[in-house]
Amino acid sequence: MQMNIKDKSQIELFKTNINNSQKVVIVPHNNPDGDALGSSLGLYNTLKNMGKDATVISPNEFPDFLNWMHGVEDVLIYDKNIKKASQLIKDCELVIFVDFNALSRIKLMGNVFKEDETPRIMIDHHPFPEANTANIQISVPEASSTCELLFHVLNEAGFKKNITKEAAECIYAGIMTDTGSLNYNSSRPETYLIVADLLRMGIDKEHIHHMIFHNNSFDRMRLLGHALGEKMERIPEQRAAFISLSQDELKRFNFKPGDTEGFVNQALWIEGVNLSAMFTEKKDIVKISFRSRGGFPANKFSETYFNGGGHFNAAGGESKLKLDETVERFKTVLKEFCEVNNYN
């Protein structure tokens, strides 16, 4: 199960820091998804099994469909418990960042770490890590997910024996959510070897898939129907399709965090569509998700026009324009991008 961890000494430093620390704080990115929370709780349950005093501090709330994960009730939400969370960070001996590689990804919580001198470890699979995010930076963009990378790191450090069944379930969930059930970002044989190891640990994959993918609220299904039936548009010339949802529309369907998870993937099921985009209106910005197939570089497109980035076939961005202005800009720059790069 080899990965391209260029500096193997980082694994040894990870091992040393874990062994020498009792109080550990684990931090996922803002608006944590399945991979962020899965890697957080996968590591949390492993460290607890090692006798460590571990705490997961999330910058904000996470989606309800992840509430089944073992240890989720112990996650501290930073923006609701700023004083307590800040004290825990101050008192801990080690901080571990998972599934992000820049302090901007944890929003206001990032201010806590600008002057904090507690040793920090970063475990992440996104490209172009920001320098000095952590003292020890374990970054492997070719990994399918941070959960896959975490399993590899724990194994290489000699901690595989400490991964409980509950931790394995969280790690498996992160791999499944970040690959769309192994539909993308999952062409490396190593990914499947790790899934096989997780199955040997006794996880109930049918139950996990049910809790993640087949446990929708009535409102979420109605929102999906509205998005597909009323809000999805095609751009045949650029082999693209997109969905846009306003705050009013989200409110009409009693939106909860996580309700639009996976919506961006839907348009890729259409024959001839190589790029799918999802525009979601928030209070001050428009959040954008991109998914692609074939040779379209979703990350390059997002970086160029929407202050974003990510993986080749899965990226995100944002716009400070109004929702309708953002959509019009998308149409314009997509045509430009395709013409310049010959993607038509």
Rank of each mutant, 00 (worst) to 15 (best):
L13V: 13
I18Y: 00
N19M: 10
I26V: 11
I26A: 09
V27K: 05
P32W: 06
G34K: 13
L37C: 07
L43I: 00
L47T: 14
N49P: 06
T55S: 11
N60M: 06
P63K: 09
L66T: 03
I82P: 01
A85E: 12
L94R: 15
A102M: 06
K107E: 11
R120H: 04
A131D: 14
N132Y: 01
I138E: 14
S139N: 15
E142T: 09
A143M: 15
N155D: 15
A157V: 08
T164E: 13
G174M: 05
G174K: 02
M176W: 00
S181T: 13
N183S: 11
S186F: 04
R188W: 02
Y192W: 09
V195F: 02
L198N: 08
K205F: 02
M211R: 15
H214Y: 08
N215W: 02
N216P: 07
S217F: 05
M221D: 09
M232L: 15
E233S: 14
A240V: 08
L245K: 01
Q247G: 01
E249Y: 00
L268C: 12
W269Y: 10
E281K: 01
K283A: 02
S292E: 07
G294K: 15
F296P: 13
P297G: 11
K300C: 13
Y305R: 12
G308E: 14
H311A: 05
N313S: 09
E318T: 02
S319K: 07
K322N: 03
D324M: 04
T326N: 04
K335L: 04
C338M: 05
E339H: 04
